[in-house]
Design a protein around this nucleic acid. Structure first.
Lengths: 169, 169
DNA sequence: CAGTTTAAGTCAGTGTTGTTGACATTCCAA
DNA sequence: TTGGAATGTCAACAACACTGACTTAAACTG
């Protein structure tokens, strides 16, 4: 990729980025992420669950039958940390853990009916905000939004993201 | 704003948003935010500081002389939580707290030289990633990125964001 | 001036989420 | 059969958030 100069016109992939512009982007991420998590957090705050429970349920719902190890990689936490969350979700009957048929060491994770209900409640809240943001910003902005976010991920996270993403495309 | 229908063409502010599309956006936010905080976290992990210290220093650097109350509002945490962070930063000589001249109840916060050094180190890491993401995605994508993020903020956060943003514009 | 409000700071307790480290169990595979 | 991988558990700890109660000092207000 070529580097931009002062004469570079917009619309090309040549950018002069001042510290001020970048700082604004950083603050936008900070404030937007707070909004992004606010709705599910509000719902979860009234129960014994937190954001970690939501994340686990989200990805189990997204990929039913996923293994603990898969989930570990996607979420990027330690097994001990995830295990604490999974244990309560299983104990409360929101998640079911089935021993693998081919490899009995593996546990395949599924949401129960009750789990799906809660997951949907949380997702609906989060999707609602995402939907209005998308509508307010418009389709072109949404495409740009996704492009910048993808470029911001760590290569490994990006691999995980694209692996999951392409299933639904 | 009019609502989109199946015949709506792209480029207009009429959007059909499937749950799948929204889910992809949600996951993009999740993975990207991890990347966004990864570099400063790595630096902070080697010291006695965490993400909260970085945030405080960021906004003190951004608005030198800001009061504790201002910072509280911007960061959206309790004063007890912020106080814990500020106490260590002041004790370690990274932040200076000056009694207000007009209102002696207020404390105005500044980064010391040492504080500016650390803040810059953390910011440089974060800006570096933001810069390459922006370059990779291109100017139009960046504009869209910012538009979606702004639309995603809570109204009050958005007010805070715009108040700070316009100073630098 | 007396009473109230505001700003800041503090102490104590609690909860969620993350981390390491150590260890047991189960099972696959060389 | 032995080694390694996957899973799970226990304990300890740290960061960061919360609530609630309280103090101090300064400023505002009737």
């Amino acid at each position: 990729m070529t580097d931009g100069g002062p004469g570079a016109h917009g619309g090309e992939n040549l950018l002069f980025l001042t510290d001020e512009q970048l700082r604004k982007g950083i603050e936008a991420m900070f404030f937007a992420y707070r909004g992004f998590t606010a709705d599910p957090d509000r719902i979860l705050g009234e129960m014994a669950y937190g954001r970690a429970h939501h994340r686990a349920m989200h990805f189990i719902n997204r990929s039913p039958g996923t293994t603990v190890n898969n989930l570990l990689t996607v979420l990027g936490v330690t097994k001990q940390s995830l295990n604490r969350v999974l244990r309560t979700l299983i104990a409360d009957g929101l998640v079911e853990s089935r021993v693998g048929k081919r490899d009995k060491r593996e546990r395949h994770l599924f949401l129960t009916e009750e789990g799906r209900t809660l997951e949907r409640e949380l997702s609906d809240a989060q999707r609602g905000r995402m939907r209005s943001a998308y509508r307010e910003a418009g389709p072109d902005a949404v495409a740009g939004f996704r492009r910048v976010l993808e470029a911001m991920m760590d290569p490994e996270m990006r691999r995980q993201y694209l692996k999951i993403k392409e299933r639904g495309d």
